[in-house]
């Protein structure tokens, strides 16, 4: 299996403030890759680096076998078209209906004709269970629906990688479980690689098949592998505490 993301000696932070030092990890094609760690350890910042919103302080990483740090703007754009992102609150454009939100990347980046785009929008909304909500504005739907609509938009271009920042934050347990299921369906049936930032234990064990644990104190990756294996043999106490909600001593 090929690696879709490969990081070597990567450091992440803001100016003098370093959050992650000299990190190496790789994400294989078809993985559900979990980035976990306590609040404020730099998970969102790492995601910002991976999606190209900010450069790493040091080191390099490649996405879909292209070096991301040294690639020029055109190549970055090409890579971005092959990735989708679901932000914490969905980040839907409030002045557009759900259909227009999903159609935006399609009309920007593809040569499909209008009726095809229309049908693709229907399909993506149907996949996330929102068929019939095409003409709703984001302010008219619930938080869980916003996330699903955001996912529909992230899936618009049939991406190879989809990033999620705390997808279950702010959702009730049922919606959260449904979102997990949906993510798994997409992962298995579209063969999309998912990179998920989360500290929701249930999700971690349900969907993750590979993971890294960012440690805020050492600023390094202190654990990696299948989360279930990590729970069985935790490499250190902090990971054990994290995976058992602090019950393990």
């Amino acid at each position: 299996m090929t690696n879709v993301i490969e990081a070597k000696g990567m450091s992440v932070g803001y100016g003098p403030k370093v959050l992650l030092k000299n990190a190496d990890f790789e994400v294989k094609k078809g993985d559900v890759f979990i980035i976990m760690g306590g609040s404020g350890c730099g998970k969102s910042s790492l995601l910002k680096v991976l999606t190209g919103l900010m450069p790493p302080l040091d080191g390099r990483f490649s996405v879909l076998e292209r070096d991301f740090v040294t690639s020029d703007d055109e190549e970055k754009l090409n890579l971005r078209k092959k990735t989708g992102i679901l932000y914490q609150s969905g980040a839907l454009f409030s002045s557009m209906t759900l259909a227009e939100n999903v159609a935006l990347p399609l009309s920007q980046y593809t040569d499909y004709d209008l009726s095809t785009i229309d049908e693709l929008v229907h399909l993506k909304l149907a996949l996330v269970g929102l068929l019939g909500y095409e003409d709703y504005y984001p302010s008219e739907i619930s938080g869980g629906m916003k996330k699903r609509a955001g996912l529909a938009r992230a899936l618009a271009l049939d991406p190879q990688i989809v990033y999620f920042d705390e997808p279950s934050a702010g959702l009730d347990p049922v919606s959260s479980a449904r979102l997990d299921e949906l993510m798994l369906e997409i992962n298995q049936n579209l063969n999309t690689t998912l990179v998920v930032v989360t500290h929701e234990l249930q999700s971690i064990f349900n969907i993750g098949n590979n993971s890294i644990y960012l440690d805020a104190q050492t600023k390094t990756i202190t654990g990696r592998g299948n989360p279930k294996e990590l729970l069985k043999n935790p490499p250190n106490e902090r990971i054990a505490a994290f995976l058992t909600r602090g019950k393990a001593k």
Partner: peptide
């Protein structure tokens, strides 16, 4: 393909709601 079949099932699983915001 299996993925196609599954996704079709997923897409048709939820009945569309009647559009009220029109």
């Amino acid at each position: 393909p299996k993925g196609v079949e599954k996704l079709l099932k997923l897409a048709t699983a939820v009945e569309p709601v009647q559009n009220v915001s029109q």
